[in-house]
C-alpha cells in the first residue's frame, strides 16, 4: 500500500512496515544554527521521545518533521521517499499537536473538533469518531459548551481529541502533558499505547523523567549545537 492511498482511505490499517527517518538534519532559525548533524529513525509501532533544554530545537524539529519548514541541510524520509517529494501524502498521514491549540472560542467544543475532523476528511463515521474522541478525554459533558469557557487543561484535552477524531499514522506531539491532570495524562498514555499497538508512530517532546516505556530517546543536549 502506498502512502497516498493511506491518505485517501483514512480507515485502512496503517502501513505496518513504515519507517520514518531523518539524516544529517540541520535547522536554522533567524539566521542562527539551532542544531546540525541530527539523525533519527522510528519504525511502525515505535515512539521517539525528544528531550533537551529549552531552545535546543525540539519544537523546530517537529515542524521539520511535519513538513511545515524545510531543513537547512539533510533530508527526512518516509519509507525511503523524501517527504518533500509528496508533501500532500505526508500531511495526510500526520497529526501535529503544537503549543498553540487552534481552538476558536466562539465555537462549541464539538464544533471545534468537528471542523478539524471534516477538514481532514474523517468520512461517514465522523460523528461516531468525534463522540469517541470526546469520551476518551472526558469532554463529552462539555460538548455543547462554547470553547471560550474551557480551562487551560480542558483546551489541551480538546486539542488531543483531534488525534482520535481523524486517523493518522504519525503523531507529532509537542509537550502534550503541559497542563494535563493525572486522569487526562493517563488517557493520553492509553491513546498512545493503542496508537502504537495499531502500528502508529509517535514523536513526542517530553521532559526526561516521564517518557513512556520502551521508547527511543533523542537527547538534544547530546547533539552538538552548531556554532
Amino acid at each position: 500500500m502506498t502512502a497516498s492511498s493511506l491518505a485517501a482511505l483514512p480507515d485502512q490499517l496503517p502501513d505496518a512496515r513504515a519507517v520514518f527517518a531523518g539524516r544529517g538534519l540541520a535547522c536554522e532559525r533567524g539566521g542562527r544554527r539551532v542544531f546540525h548533524g541530527l539523525s533519527f529513525m522510528v519504525c511502525a509501532g515505535e515512539a521517539l521521545v525528544l528531550v533537551g533544554r529549552n531552545g535546543s530545537g525540539k519544537s523546530s524539529l517537529l515542524r521539520l518533521m511535519a513538513g511545515l519548514s524545510r531543513p537547512a541541510q539533510g533530508s527526512l524520509t518516509w519509507n525511503a521517499g523524501d517527504i518533500a517529494d509528496d508533501s500532500e501524502a505526508h500531511h495526510g498521514r500526520l497529526h501535529l499537536i503544537g503549543h498553540q491549540d487552534a481552538i476558536k472560542p466562539a465555537l462549541t467544543v464539538k464544533e471545534n473538533l468537528g471542523f478539524w475532523a471534516r477538514y481532514r476528511g474523517a468520512g461517514p463515521c465522523a460523528s461516531a469518531r468525534i463522540a469517541d474522541a470526546l469520551r476518551a478525554f472526558a469532554l463529552e459533558r462539555l460538548a455543547e459548551l462554547p470553547a471560550r469557557y474551557l480551562s487551560q487543561g480542558q483546551r489541551r484535552r480538546l486539542s488531543l481529541c483531534r488525534l482520535l477524531a481523524s486517523p493518522a499514522q504519525l503523531w507529532l506531539l509537542d509537550e502534550p502533558r503541559a497542563g494535563l491532570d493525572r486522569a487526562a495524562s493517563a488517557s493520553l498514555d492509553a491513546a498512545l499505547a493503542h496508537h502504537r499497538a495499531a502500528g502508529g508512530i509517535a514523536v513526542v517532546v517530553l521532559h526526561a523523567e516521564d517518557h513512556p516505556p520502551e521508547a527511543r530517546v533523542l537527547d538534544f543536549d547530546a547533539v552538538k549545537a552548531g556554532g
Partner: peptide, 9 residues
C-alpha cells in the same frame, strides 16, 4: 492560534 499550521497540514 495555530489554525493556519493545521490548515496547511
Amino acid at each position: 492560534d495555530g489554525s493556519l499550521d493545521l490548515l496547511a497540514l
